[in-house]
Design a protein around this nucleic acid. Structure first.
Lengths: 247, 247
DNA sequence: CGCAACAGAGAGCACCGCTCACTAGAAGGA
DNA sequence: TCCTTCTAGTGAGCGGTGCTCTCTGTTGCG
C-alpha cells in the first residue's frame, strides 16, 4: 500500500462540530481549518469561485500548498465548505430580516429585502450558491438542510398568515399534486399547506433567487431602470400570488 | 514597438459577416474560424465552460495552441463567441416552437416547452448564457439584440393576444413606471404594452429562465417529483398572470 | 518581382491542482 | 520514561493551463 496516504476527506464537517478539542494538536487543527476557510472566503469574495486557488490560500497563510491538503482533500471540497457556510449566512440573513410580530405583508417584504441585501453584498457567494454548480462534489444531503433555511422563512410567514386567516384564496391554474414531492408537503411546516400553496411557495422561492440573479448578472441592463423598485414590485407580485394582501 | 503583434480582437464578429471572402487566405481564415468554433462548441457541450481549454481545441485541430490566438484573442473571447452562438440557438428554438396561427395559450406553452427542451439538450450552453457570467469580456451591446430574441417571442404572443382582445385584465399589485427602462417599452412591439404588461413580461421571461435553471442545477431535487409537470404548471401560472386564459 | 502582411510553429513564463517522499515532533501505550 | 505510531508540515515534481514572444515560411498586392 502507499505510504503516508492520510487524506482529509470531509474532515472539515466534523471538525466544525467538535465542541472541545482535547489535545494541542486538535486545537491547532481546528484553528488552522478555520483560518484556511477564512482566507478562502476572503479570496472568494474578491475574485470569485473560478479565481480562488488553493495555492494562494496557502501563500496567504505562509504554508506549503501541499499542507492545505491535510485539511481539505481538494479544491472542490474547500468550495463545498464555502458553499455550506454561505448557505448558512443567507439563511441567517433571512431569519434576521424577519419580524415575526409584524403583519405578514411587512414580514414578506422585509425578508425579501434582507436576502437581496445579502446577495448584493456577497455576489460571489450568491453565484456559488445559485449559479452554475461548479464543485463536482456537492455533498447533497449535507447541504439540503442548510440550503432550506432561507425558503423556510418564507414558508413560515405564509403559514402564520394562513393560521390567522389573513390569506386570500388563490387564483390561477392548479398544480397537479403528482408534480410535487410528497416529502415536501411534510417538510413545509408539517403539512400546513395544500399542494397549490406549496407550489406557489416553491415558485416564490425560485422568483426571489431568480430575480436577484438577473440583477446581479446584468440581464436587467436596459430592461429595468430602477432595480430596487423593480425588486420591490416583484416581491409584492409574488406575495399577492400567494394570497398576501398586496393589491 | 513590439514586432509581430497582430492580434485577433473580436475578429470573429465580422469574419462571420463576410459574405464573400475573395482571397484564398480569407477563405482559409473563415473556414478555420468556423472549425475552431465547432470544436470549442463540441467541447463546451461535453465538459462545460470551466473545462474548455484553448489548448485542447488546438490539439483537436492539429495546430499549435499559439496559432489559435490568430483567430481568438483570448479564451474569454472564444467563450464570448460561443455565448453569441448559443443565444442565437435558444432564440431559434423559441421561434421554431412558436405556431403563430394557434391560440395564444397553445403558442405560449409550445414556446416554453421548446426553450426547456433546448436547455435540457444543451445544459452547458444554458449555463453559459444564464449562469454566472464567466467571460470577463462579454461585449454587451453586441449580444443584447441576439439575447433578446427569445423573450421577444414571448412578447409577440402576448401582443397578438392583446390585439385580438384575448387578454384578460391583469390583477395584482401595480408596477411603478419608473422601475422600467423607457427604452424597453419602445423595444417591445413598439409600444403595444402598458407598463404593467411589460413588467409581467419581464417576470415571465425571468421565470422561464429561472425555473429551468432550478431544474438543471438540482435545486428541485426532493422538492418536485415530476419536473416536466411542474414546468408545465409554471408555464400556465405565468401565462395566467399575463392575462392568458389558463385557469 | 519585391515588400509587407499574415499564419503558423515552438519555446518559454507563470500559474494551477495534486501527488509523493521525507522529516520533525506530538500522542499515547508499555 | 522510552519508544512506537501517527500527524502535520516541507519541497520537489508531474501534467496541465492561458498567454507571449521570436522566428519562419507563405500569401497578397502594388
Amino acid at each position: 500500500m502507499r505510504p503516508d496516504s492520510a487524506r482529509a476527506v470531509l474532515s472539515f464537517l466534523y471538525t466544525g462540530l467538535m465542541n472541545a478539542p482535547r489535545t494541542a494538536r486538535e486545537r491547532a487543527r481546528a484553528e488552522l481549518t478555520k483560518e484556511i476557510l477564512a482566507s478562502a472566503r476572503r479570496q472568494l469574495g474578491e475574485v470569485g469561485a473560478p479565481g480562488l486557488s488553493l495555492r494562494s490560500v496557502a501563500r496567504e497563510l505562509g504554508m506549503a500548498s501541499s499542507a492545505v491538503y491535510r485539511y481539505f482533500a481538494s479544491r472542490d471540497e474547500l468550495l463545498t465548505a464555502l458553499l455550506v457556510e454561505s448557505y448558512g449566512e443567507i439563511g441567517d440573513a433571512a431569519v434576521e430580516a424577519d419580524r415575526p410580530g409584524d403583519a405578514p405583508e411587512d414580514r414578506w417584504l422585509g425578508v425579501w429585502r434582507g436576502v437581496r441585501d445579502w446577495s448584493l453584498r456577497n455576489r460571489h457567494e450568491y453565484a456559488l450558491l445559485f449559479g452554475t454548480p461548479v464543485p463536482g462534489y456537492a455533498a447533497p444531503h449535507i447541504t439540503v438542510e442548510t440550503a432550506g433555511r432561507m425558503p423556510l422563512v418564507l414558508a413560515r410567514i405564509v403559514a402564520d398568515a394562513k393560521r390567522d386567516g389573513r390569506l386570500r384564496p388563490l387564483t390561477g391554474p392548479e398544480c397537479p399534486p403528482a408534480a410535487i414531492d410528497p416529502a415536501m408537503l411534510v417538510l413545509l411546516e408539517e403539512g400546513a399547506f395544500t399542494v397549490e400553496e406549496t407550489a406557489r411557495l416553491i415558485l416564490a422561492w425560485n422568483r426571489l433567487v431568480g430575480v436577484i440573479g438577473y440583477e446581479l448578472h446584468g440581464h436587467l441592463a436596459n430592461v429595468t431602470a430602477d432595480d430596487a423598485a423593480f425588486f420591490e414590485y416583484t416581491a409584492r407580485a409574488e406575495g399577492a400570488s400567494l394570497g398576501l394582501a398586496f393589491d
